[in-house]
């Protein structure tokens, strides 16, 4: 369970200006919920995710995971970054065993666990490849496996499929849902695609243009597996597009 109360974040630029990135964010996410963040670019989505990850400190407000305050990165939260983040000097398998090495789990055991997760993302045959030998979509699947192997309660994902082509993206969404249903994690997933949010989320959080506030939280009560083009999905999509459109217009003005 994740709770955010009265969170504010201000950046100070080198020229001495203040950028209010997040303003009075209040959010509650139940266990095993799949939540999508959507909003105009620059509204603070990445900042919020980084604060939850413990990579950035808020200026005020309280954040808790399972009632524990967040003070820094921790094993209860995993993250998949928008940019490719695999360690290029490690093979795919060794990327996944990274966190297990730190936990001093014996080699044979950690490789067994890593192979399980590689199988989960369908890349077992690439265990001994180096990241530069993988396509963009494959890299992100390995990054997901690497985050999952640490067994976090919350998986934070910052536009993980932003840089892959549409077909691959659809497949990755399916795979992600499979993993999520099997491992039952809480997922916070940033996207700029309304379609992606409607297909994936239990709950969509719409942010306002900068300074980022929570504009509305939409529950997507559609049965899974979802039909991308069902009548109900279209209704949610239209609502989201209208809500987001107003903010994107505000961001331009």
């Amino acid at each position: 369970m994740l709770s955010i109360k009265n969170l504010n974040k201000i950046y100070h630029t080198e020229e001495g200006d203040e950028v209010v990135a997040l303003s009075d964010i209040n959010l509650y996410v139940a266990d095993k919920e799949f939540v999508c963040f959507i909003g105009p670019s620059g509204c603070g989505k990445t900042t919020l995710l980084r604060i939850i990850a413990g990579l950035e400190k808020p200026d005020s407000g309280t954040l808790t995971v399972n009632k524990e305050p967040i003070t820094g990165p921790g094993p209860d939260r995993g993250m998949v970054f928008q940019e490719y983040s695999l360690f290029p000097w490690r093979t795919v398998l060794k990327n996944i065993t990274f966190s297990l090495e730190l936990k001093k789990i014996p080699k044979s055991e950690r490789e067994k666990i890593a192979r399980e997760f590689l199988e989960l993302v369908g890349l077992l045959e690439f265990a001994d490849s180096y990241p530069h030998e993988l396509s963009g979509g494959m890299k992100q699947r390995v990054a997901i496996a690497r985050a999952m192997v640490n067994d976090p309660d919350v998986l934070l994902m910052d536009e993980p499929f932003g840089a892959v082509d549409a077909q691959t993206r659809n497949r990755l969404q399916h795979e992600l849902l499979n993993i999520w249903e099997r491992k039952k994690k809480t997922v916070l997933f940033i996207t700029h695609s309304v379609d992606e949010a409607v297909f994936l989320a239990d709950k969509v959080v719409v942010f306002t243009a900068r300074p980022g506030r929570v504009k509305e939280v939409i529950n997507v009560d559609l049965p899974r597996p979802r039909e991308r083009t069902s009548f109900e999905a279209n209704a949610v999509r239209e609502h989201l597009l209208a809500s987001l459109g107003a903010e994107i217009q505000a961001a331009i003005d």
Binding site: A53, G54, L55, P73, P75, R77, G78, M79, F81, E83, Y84, S85, F87, F98, S99, L102, K103, R146, A147, N150
Partner: peptide, 11 residues
């Protein structure tokens, strides 16, 4: 991003 990846993985 590599340093931060390490940090969220417990390094």
């Amino acid at each position: 991003v590599l340093v931060e990846s390490g940090m969220v993985l417990g390094c």
